[in-house]
Amino acid sequence: MSLQMMRERTDDCISDLRFDQCLGGELDDAEQAQVRDHLAFCRRCRERQTLLADERTRFERSDMSDPEWLRGSGLQRRPAFSRRMLGLSSLLAAACLLLALQLRRPEDMLRTKGDPFISFYVKRGEQVLRGSSQEVLQPGDRLRFAYTAASAQYLAILSIDGAAQASIYYPAGAQAERVEPGTDVLLPSSVELDATLGEEKIVAVFCAEPFEVEPLRAALAELPARPGCSTYTLQVHKQ
């Protein structure tokens, strides 16, 4: 949104609205591919994307990212941030509602209600950000996964990268690891992304019974349905 950037803009360039729709999970596969293809050769749009990402990060770290007024059960307009005072009862109501809402990210909307799922955090340099599906990542980024499950499960997290190479991200052993019920529980290890660029699918397999991970990795491209199991897939882009 600088006038200097506007002067450099071509008709094919990605508008802020398009970037926002992309981040909001509103674009279909073909539209996302268009955005990625354009970013691959347009310096102006890559710089704009970086600026927008930085602004989003600052917002997510601010007090605005999870405001009390959004969690409050009363819907009447309240005074502005600087003049607002909440009583103890309002705070308690807001805290209860937060537990009920468990704000979800776009990728979570795609899963069946109640199914276990994973999320992840990205460490890039000294920064740690919460990631989301369709995230643009870089080689060298470190990912740390978290899971949410209503019951105890056996979990493995695998990946298939842009070169169709399948890897096991979690656990380190041959057997899927048992995880206890919990919300956004961090797993103990992290993985560093290698230099292979392109789309990468990250697949979490949750099963009620223990299972061997290596056979899954070998067949990841055509992951078979397993009775008593569910899968949850994230897609990221490495560039």
Binding site: M1, D16, D20, L23, G24, G25, L52, E55, R56, F59, E60, M64, S65, L70, R71, L97, A100, L101, L103, R104, R105, P106, M109
Partner: peptide, 19 residues
């Protein structure tokens, strides 16, 4: 509906604030 608005806030509030 309230949860839906909260989801929208989480994914879109940064762009509303930026603009």
């Amino acid at each position: 509906a309230q949860a839906r608005v909260a989801e929208i806030y989480r994914s879109h509030a940064a762009s509303v604030f930026r603009r």
